[in-house]
Design a protein around this nucleic acid. Sequence first.
DNA 1: GGCCCGTCTGTGACTGTGTCACCCAGCCGC
DNA 2: GCGGCTGGGTGACACAGTCACAGACGGGCC
Lengths: 219, 219
Amino acid sequence: MSWLARAEGLEGIEPGIAARLGMLPVSPLPKGKVLFCPGEAARGFTILLTGRVEVFLIGPTGREILLYAIEPGQSCVQSTLGLLGGEDYTGEAVAATDCEAVLVPKDIFLALMDESPVFRRFVFGAFAQRLQSVMALLERVAFQKVESRLAADLLDRAADGAVHATHQEIATRIGTAREVVSRRLDALARAGMVRLDRGCVTIEDAPGLARLASADGAR
Amino acid sequence: MSWLARAEGLEGIEPGIAARLGMLPVSPLPKGKVLFCPGEAARGFTILLTGRVEVFLIGPTGREILLYAIEPGQSCVQSTLGLLGGEDYTGEAVAATDCEAVLVPKDIFLALMDESPVFRRFVFGAFAQRLQSVMALLERVAFQKVESRLAADLLDRAADGAVHATHQEIATRIGTAREVVSRRLDALARAGMVRLDRGCVTIEDAPGLARLASADGAR
DNA sequence: GGCCCGTCTGTGACTGTGTCACCCAGCCGC
DNA sequence: GCGGCTGGGTGACACAGTCACAGACGGGCC
C-alpha cells in the first residue's frame, strides 16, 4: 500500500496524480537529524508521515526559539519557499523523534501545482496555517510575558501531568534564556503550582497555570 | 485601459482571464481608512495599485508593531488566509496614504486559482514573500536590541536625510514603547549621530547608524 | 498680544528580562 | 575515590517596558 493513504489532506487526490506520487520513496529520519539549515537551497517539497519535526529560529547569540512543529500529514513549508520565488529561509529543522518523510522533487512539485487542484489546496492550506502560526508566535513573543508563555508551554506538553525536559529545552521552546526559566519555575514552585525535579516539571495546579497562560501578560 | 496593466506580477496573465479581471472596479481608499480589523471575515482578495497600506499587530496593552507594508502591485495576503482554510487573522490594516485597490471577490478568486497558472504564481509568490518577511520580523523582535532596530528603521525611511515622524510612530514601527524610543534617540543625539526636532529626526552620521543596525545586537 | 488646549517630548522610579560569571549537586565512567 | 559532564541555582548588571508626571511647543481663539 502506498504511503499516500497515510497522508492527511491528500485523501481525495486524483488517481493519475496518485500513481505518480505513490512511487516516491519514503525516507527514514533518525531522531536528532538536521533536515536543513540556514542558507541551504531547497531540495524539494517534504511531507511528513510519522514522527515530529521542530523548526527553530536561531539568534546570533545562540539563543533559539521554536518557530513551529511539523506533525504527521503536514508539510515543511519552508522547503517550499525556495520553490516559489522566496529567498532562502533562515531557521533549522530537527527531527524531534524518529520520522518518516517523503521528498517530492522540485520538478514534480511544480508540475503537480499546475495539474492537481487537490495537491494545490493541500500546499496552500499548509502555507496559510504556517503564516497564521508564525504570526501567533510573533504576537506572543512581542506582547506576552515569559511567565505566561512558560505556563502555556507547560500545559501544552504535560502529557501525564508532568513535563520531561531540562530548563534549557523549555527556554528554547519559548524563546528565552535558561536562567530566566529557572527563576520563573522557581517562583511557580514557591507558589505551589509545580514541583521541580531534575529534568522534570510536575504540574500541581493546572487551573492556576491556565490562568497565568491566558492572562494577557502585558510586557 | 484596464488597471491590469498597472499590476506588477500579472503582466503575462492569460487574455481570457484578463478580460474577467479587468472589469473589476478600482476602489479608492482614503488615507487613514481601516481596511480590516481582527475578527472580521475575509471578503476577498485585494490587490493594491497605488499608495501604501500598513498592517499592524496589536497587543493587549495597546502597543502595536508593524507586521508589514503593502506596496503597489502587492496583495493583501491576510485577506487570502480566510479564503484558503486558515482562520481569521489578527491584525489591522490601515491605508498609510491615499490608495487605489481592486477587490477580487471570493468566487472569482477561487476560480482563478484553478484556471490561471499566472494568477496562481502571483498569489503564491505574495504568500512566500509575506511568510519570509514575517519570519524576518520575528527574528528582529526576538533577537535584536531596540537600538539596532531603531537605527535600521531610521535609515530605511530617511528619504531626504531626515525622518518625519513622532517618537510614537517610530515606536510603533519597531514594536516598542515611546519612552524607549525617546531615550534611545537621545543617546544617538548625544553621540552625534542624529539631530532631534519636534516631529523630525535628522540623520547626521549614516555610516554610524548602519554599523548599529547591522550589529547583531544580542539582547 | 495673551490664553487655552492638545500633541509631542523628557524624566524618574520600578519591574521584568537577558547576559555573564560563577558555584554547586548529582551522575557516570574510570 | 576521582575527574568530568550535565543540569540547575545565584548574584550582579544593563537593557526594556510601564506608569506617572512635568515641560515644551504649536495652533486656534479672543
